[in-house]
Nucleic acid binder design. Structure first.
Length: 808
RNA sequence: GCCGCUGUGGCGAAAUCGGCAGACGCGCGGGACUUAGAAUCCCGUGGGAGACCAUGCAGGUUCGAUCCCUGUCAGCGGCACCA
């Protein structure tokens, strides 16, 4: 079969008959199958795209044949850093390179032959999309979910520019190798923490991989503890969060993050120099390094003291970078006797270590970090663990120095980017009116084309007079725009909603369109998005629901992650590894169906693995075998005789395949689905070799087989369907359903075990009771021989699998 | 470092709820067809001469463990400005 020609032919027909478009008028149940949209950074589709979209499209087609009205849109996540970096390097404008890349990728995606509804395509960098991204920002702002505060950025002093984490290599700028420091800027945040509890509890309702839910749970990081206030001699108050308030009597010092607002204020003249030096050093370390439990602990004394509210003890205040400003209150109470890190730190700096918890069962070796009995705390001595924490927290609350508190590791979402290639933040700063949101009627705030990308200390937009200079929407006076753009994760947090209504120019989407299609039934994409994109999208959905734009709680009911296809050397494919494998040559040589089928068969979908093309020939051979037998059987005259054991076996194979392929496709277990289809082809060949054939059964089996294979090799099966006299499109046929009667066997092979060791196999009639099975097993010659004089103690029967005789 | 995942023949992999480890393929070996090769078709194929031994390694629970538990090693994904 000339696959190039066949692909062209069927793609043209599908497009002409709008086969791939969602049918607005259909009464069938809808099924929204969505793959994560592509980022057009490289010019071409890579194996990862294919591995995501090919098999997922087979799932969508399978659902279509099962009678669903399937919606499978595609688009581009087109804003982002790489296009801007490319512009800095080559001078090619991000808009131009992005549009060019998108054009290439669209063409390749069409050539894949997936059932994408291109009539609903979206590109996040287009005005009619980012207008609504800006609208989202304004709604969140109105709802009090967007606010400004200071936050650190990576700053390269030499390039005078903000760097992404990716651009910082070993603490240095990837462009000029200067040491990167952290610098505070006032930036926009979304209050995702307001939804922490619901983002956590909502996980229970989702059909998502358990590991993904667990990762989100840990990312949100709920912990129940106590907030405690330590009064400083300066009159300032240090608030700390602890999950171990039962150890508060053992506090021997307090630690602030170097970025803590009180850090400098509490520093005494004598310590000034050391503290400044330390703060600068700390600004160079990455957060990952700072959280490392094996890294040498460092810190510096501020010169100040504060008072432990429970016992009035005066303890020193230190700065140390193992405390993060972004977690909890940015300050901790240190209890070296009962915390590993505090113990190490106290030992290093000669700070006292006071034991206030004792091990209930045995010697107390410090640091003792488990629950134990409180000692040396007069009113609380003898209390233990949760009970102690409860009493002590209540006591602290009575003192007016804090109390029980739930804390989350989740932080608010920083959305400001000091970059060009993104959606401008729709905010104006007016000397008289302050921070003013751009009125919705004035959206979009257009991204100007003529900008200077060269990094020179200012965001590209900040240097653009025409963009920056504006009038205040409130007072009409002179004002300036926010020079920053939005994080691209903002664009991708609501795109699945826009697909429902992409042309709408009065709203991001109509309620009617969204009600019809959303939520997404099955979302397919990489596991690397487990904590960020997938959490942000959930947050957007919940916020939009609370603003009355939606009436569902979760955007993605079911989630599936495809694995990562690595380079042949086992490393992630990258230019630097020089191990990139392009799908193009394979598609060219074998055709898109064979390539898709190979991806489905050769790898576990959720695991991925190193690339290897061993076996792609086997897929080509399999398809040849299918074509050959299909055409051969087509030309047989029809006979209904005979129907004996051979026919029963073929019918069993046919129905077994239907049953398992259906189950496996539903589970995204594509490799086993293809294996079951190969088994059926083998059975058909075997049957066809018989001298006497029931060709009616054979023809029906081949027909079912083509239907089974169609979602996985769509062009190929359409062609064979047509060549065997099928009418219309194969994708308008129903997926086969197994006949349970054909799957009932008279007897099943059991493994017979004696004391859990296999002795022999035995055929046991279906429907035999456990007693009958036991008797049959005991009567077997192999069993009698090995049994000797031993008596039966117990008999374990696992239906349709084994019988285990325990003797002694 | 922290969070999560993975580890099974020469290779890709499979194994429902703890129940016959290795389905389906690749590769390899043998055979058929052919002047010959390619292609195709058929048979065999975890290791071991064997009792037996095998699911990264060391233990544990169980009648029975690839699966559950403890420890450990290796690889992969993420760690909040790559997307």
């Amino acid at each position: 079969m000339d696959m190039k020609e066949v692909e062209r032919k069927w793609q043209a027909r599908w497009t002409k008959e709008k086969l791939n478009e969602f049918d607005e008028k259909s009464t069938k149940p809808k099924k929204y199958v969505l793959e994560m949209f592509s980022y057009p950074s490289g010019a071409k589709l890579h194996i990862g795209h294919w591995f995501n979209y090919g098999p997922a499209d087979s799932y969508a087609r399978f659902k279509r044949m099962q009678g669903y009205n399937v919606f499978q849109p595609m688009g581009f996540d087109a804003f982002g850093l790489p296009a801007e970096n490319y512009a800095i390097k080559t001078g090619v404008h991000p808009k131009d390179s992005t549009e060019k890349n998108i054009a290439t990728m669209e063409e390749q995606l069409r050539a894949m032959g997936a059932m994408f509804d291109w009539s609903k395509e979206i590109k996040t960098c287009e005005e009619n999309y980012y207008k609504w991204t800006q609208w989202m920002f304004l709604q969140l702002y109105k709802k009090g979910l967007a606010y400004r505060k200071e936050a650190p950025v990576n700053w390269c002093p030499s390039c005078a520019t903000v760097l992404a984490n990716e651009q910082v290599v070993d603490g240095r700028c990837e462009r000029c190798d200067s040491v990167v420091v952290r610098k505070n800027l006032t930036q926009w945040f979304f209050k995702i923490t307001e939804y922490a509890e619901e983002l956590l509890s909502g996980l229970e309702t989702l059909d998502w991989p358990e590991k993904t839910k667990l990762m989100q749970k840990n990312w949100i990081g709920k912990s129940t503890g106590c907030e405690i206030e330590f009064d400083c001699e300066t009159g300032d108050k240090i608030r700390v969060f602890t999950t171990r308030c039962d150890t508060v009597f053992g506090v021997t010092y307090v630690v602030l993050a170097p970025e803590h607002p009180l850090a400098r204020k509490l520093t005494t003249a004598g310590q000034r120099e050391a503290v400044e030096k330390y703060i600068l050093e700390a600004s160079k370390a990455t957060e990952i390094d700072r959280l490392s439990t094996t890294r040498e602990k460092t810190g510096v004394f501020t010169g100040s003291y504060c008072i432990n509210p429970v016992n009035g003890k005066r303890v020193p205040v230190y700065l140390a970078d193992y405390v993060l400003a972004s977690y909890g209150t940015g300050a901790v109470m240190a209890v070296p006797a009962h915390d590993e890190r505090d113990y190490v730190f106290a030992t290093k700096y000669g700070l006292p270590i006071e034991k206030v918890i004792e091990n209930r069962d045995g010697e107390t070796v410090l640091p003792f970090c488990e629950d134990g009995i409180v000692v040396g705390a007069i009113n609380f001595d003898g209390l233990c663990g949760e009970e102690a924490r409860d009493e002590i927290a209540n006591h602290i609350a009575k003192l007016g120095k804090g109390g029980k508190k739930v804390n989350y590791r989740l932080r608010d979402w920083l959305v400001s980017r000091q970059r060009y290639w993104g959606a401008p933040i729709p905010i104006v700063y007016c000397p008289h009116c302050g921070t003013v949101p751009v009125p919705e009627k004035d959206l979009p705030v257009k991204l100007p084309y003529d900008v200077e990308f060269r990094p020179d200390g200012k965001s590209p937009l900040a240097k653009h007079e025409g963009f920056m200079h504006t009038t205040c929407p409130v007072c009409g006076g002179e004002a300036t725009r926010d020079p920053d753009t939005l994080d691209t994760f903002v664009c991708s947090s609501w795109y699945y909603l826009r697909y429902a209504d992409p042309e709408n120019d009065r709203a991001p989407f109509s309620r009617e369109a969204v009600d019809k299609l959303l939520p997404v039934d099955t979302y397919v994409g990489g596991a690397e998005h487990a904590c960020m994109h997938l959490l942000y999208a959930r947050f957007f959905t919940k916020a939009l629901r609370d603003m009355g734009y939606l009436d569902f709680d979760e955007p993605f009911k079911r989630l599936v992650h495809q694995g990562v296809i690595l380079g042949p050397d086992g490393n992630r494919m990258s230019k630097s590894h020089g191990n990139i494998v392009s799908p193009d040559e394979y598609v060219e040589e074998y055709g898109s169906d064979a390539f898709r089928l190979y991806l489905m068969f050769g790898f576990s979908y959720t695991e991925g693995g190193p690339w290897s093309d061993d076996g792609i020939k086997a897929i080509a051979r399999f398809m040849d075998r299918v074509e050959k037998i299909t055409l051969k059987v087509r030309d047989y005259p029809e006979t209904n005789e005979p129907f004996g054991a051979e026919e029963k076996a073929l019918d069993y194979a046919r129905n077994y395949a239907i049953q398992h392929v259906t189950k496996d496709l539903e589970a995204f277990s594509f490799n086993t689905a293809v294996a079951r289809m190969m088994e059926l082809v083998n059975s058909v060949y075997k049957y066809d070799a018989l001298p006497q054939k029931n060709t009616a059964l054979l023809k029906a089996t081949v027909r079912d087989f083509l239907l089974l294979l169609a979602p996985c090799a769509p062009h190929f099966c359409e062609e064979l369907w047509e060549q065997t006299g099928g009418k219309g499109f194969i994708f308008e046929e129903s997926y086969p359903v197994e006949n349970p009667a054909a799957l009932i066997l008279d007897e099943t092979e059991y493994a017979v075990q004696l004391n859990s060791k296999i002795v022999c196999k035995a055929m046991i009639p279906s429907g035999a009771s456990n007693e009958e099975i036991e008797a049959l097993a005991l009567a077997l010659p192999e069993v009698r021989e090995k049994l000797g004089g031993k008596t039966l103690k117990k008999c374990i029967v696992v239906p349709k699998r084994l019988v285990n005789l325990i003797v002694g």
